[in-house]
Nucleic acid binder design. Structure first.
Lengths: 126, 126
DNA sequence: GCTGAAATTGAAGAACTTTGCAAGTGTACT
DNA sequence: AGTACACTTGCAAAGTTCTTCAATTTCAGC
């Protein structure tokens, strides 16, 4: 876990490792849903909890991961805590991901259609 | 691992889970480097191996993850195997990630500067 | 057919992440 | 002060992923 935040300022982490940590931090269904909800504006935990089927303590852990990575901020307002995206076009990233994902799944269906039609043998790995 | 490929055709996985699996598949330094190398065109394993400091069998494992997810394809040419991006603008995704990453790190430095200046107490979580 | 090089696979153990529960902190209300 | 609510934290068990080793497959050249 913990990726980005662990690095003291000035200690250089190779960029490809920072990227890997960034993507790993995105790699959890609850965290994805939180980011998508936050894309529509700052949201109190209570509301996230209502929208996502998950135990409060589990949500808190996932929020902690997002917070530590720096992609979201938390501010306390009375007894509720409000989360918001720290900046950046997270929505754009999600769009890019969706495009690739769609393409990948489409490619897959085409491949399967081909395979269904001609039960031929070929010489490719796997 | 295995995410996307495990799903029989027609069994619907919630989109946020497919996204999480997709990002998790990107979440490894060796896999990121492979994708970045492949962004410059199809590349034989031998060349990947020369460019990335990693054991052959470890690289193979990571290539298998990428292959199973469908983001790359492998074709055999004589005794060498050549990998290529399966489609999609992976480069665009990486650019989006880099933008956010940069912003996050910049935000962090600003925050730290602020903290250094005024050692004030506040009431935020963490 | 052997031998060697290129790449993959399988399996075992270490390392990491996720989950849920119980306990803790902070704020608001009476 | 005491109770209730909103969240967070610590921790152990369960689950997943990573790394490495040895074994295997596939092809090319002899």
């Amino acid at each position: 876990m913990d990726g980005l935040e662990g690095s003291p300022v000035g200690v250089q982490v190779p960029l490809y490792q920072a990227k890997a940590e960034f993507f790993r931090m995105l790699g959890h269904p609850v965290r994805i849903r939180v980011l998508e909800l936050l894309a529509d504006g700052p949201t109190p935990v209570r509301q996230l909890l209502a929208a996502i089927e998950v135990e409060p303590s589990n949500l808190s852990q996932q929020l902690a991961v997002l917070r530590r990575s720096g992609i979201v901020t938390a501010t306390r307002d009375g007894s509720t805590v409000v989360y918001a995206l720290a900046g950046g076009d997270v929505a754009e990233l999600m769009r890019a991901a969706r495009r690739i994902l769609t393409e990948m799944l489409t490619g897959r269906e085409e491949l399967l259609a081909e395979l269904r039609e001609a039960e031929a043998s070929s010489a490719l790995p796997q």
